[in-house]
């Protein structure tokens, strides 16, 4: 059997990739994808722990996270489309700079 620590290490690496992607990329869609990657790292963590702890909570939690992530994607892409239409046809955060100070 694969030990728990492997799963947790994989989840940590995925999460770190997500964080790095979010902080370094400047395209809204890629930044959004990075947060999805982070959420999936969390899901992996929950499922692996739930299996090893023999408790159902983690798996139930994962279902909720997947559901919420779907809702979040719908809203996020909706906002991105409305921003793209209303401003200046860009999804690059460096060019979206009306608000500062």
């Amino acid at each position: 059997m694969i030990p728990l620590s492997w799963y947790m290490a994989l989840a940590a690496i995925l999460f770190a990739i997500g964080v790095c992607g979010f902080l370094t990329r400047r395209n809204i869609i890629i930044m959004f994808l990075s947060t999805e990657l982070m959420l999936n790292a969390v899901n992996l963590n929950f499922v692996a722990m739930s299996h090893y702890l023999e408790s159902m909570n983690g798996q139930v939690f994962t279902f909720f996270i997947i559901t919420v992530a779907a809702a979040e994607a719908a809203i996020g892409l909706g906002i991105a489309v409305s921003l793209y239409r209303s401003s200046r046809h860009t999804v690059h955060v460096d060019e979206i700079n009306e608000l500062k100070g």
Partner: peptide, 11 residues
């Protein structure tokens, strides 16, 4: 402005 604010808040 509101689109930009919403996007920042969302991300």
């Amino acid at each position: 402005k509101t689109g930009e604010a919403a996007m920042k808040y969302f991300l």
